[in-house]
């Protein structure tokens, strides 16, 4: 394994251009959680011409809904949810300045196209390694839609959050590459 690349949010185009599929990264800074229902509300707010409850410029959205925090802990177990459910919404948010997404599973052609066009990046985190995932989160607070429970938007302060570059801004896709490299059929 090559040494992981350390990156900090918000992400600049320069940093994103240095990321290539298969790169291991350690993310530090602020990231936001949002899943299906939160995305629906964000898009509805945009459709009504309202400001979003969070400024997404240069930011990363983590598709995740954590388990409740035990007393004294900032957050419960947390890992990625399947990303394709956010595909209808993602290109709109990327156009609004969103630079990164963390999830699991492949994205639609529209999302991959938007990633290329607007110099963004999609990371994969390890699904099912959620107790470990919580370790890199130092602080968590609700920023919007608290009524959605696990689906609310949270602001997370992370240090060395591990992820892998799945779709880079050059149109690359680790899932396709992986099949090519290791597939025997």
């Amino acid at each position: 394994m090559a040494e992981p690349k350390r990156i900090t949010t918000p992400l600049s185009d320069e940093v994103i251009k240095d990321l290539h599929i298969g790169d291991s990264v350690l993310i530090s800074g602020v990231i936001y959680t949002a899943r299906d229902s939160a995305h629906k509300r964000l898009i509805e707010a945009l459709e009504r011409g309202e400001e979003l409850p969070v400024d997404l410029k240069g930011q990363i959205i983590y598709y995740a809904g954590p388990a409740p925090a035990k007393p004294g802990k900032p957050i419960g177990s947390i890992g990625p949810t399947t990303s394709y459910r956010m595909d209808p919404y993602a290109p709109i948010l990327i156009e609004k300045g969103l630079k990164g997404m963390i999830g699991k599973g492949n994205r639609s052609d529209e999302v991959i196209e938007a990633i290329k066009k607007h110099t963004a990046v999609y990371f994969g985190a390890i699904g099912g390694a959620a107790a470990l995932g919580a370790k890199s989160i130092k602080k968590a607070e609700f920023v919007a839609y608290e009524d959605l429970g696990p689906e609310a938007i949270r602001r997370l302060e992370v240090v060395d959050f591990p992820a892998v570059v799945v779709n880079d801004c050059y149109g690359g896709d680790i899932y396709k590459q992986g099949l090519k490299e290791y597939g025997e059929v």
Binding site: G22, G178, Y182
Partner: peptide, 10 residues
Amino acid sequence: KLGIGPQGFG
């Protein structure tokens, strides 16, 4: 033999 691998990364 499909090559999907752990987390689909190959």
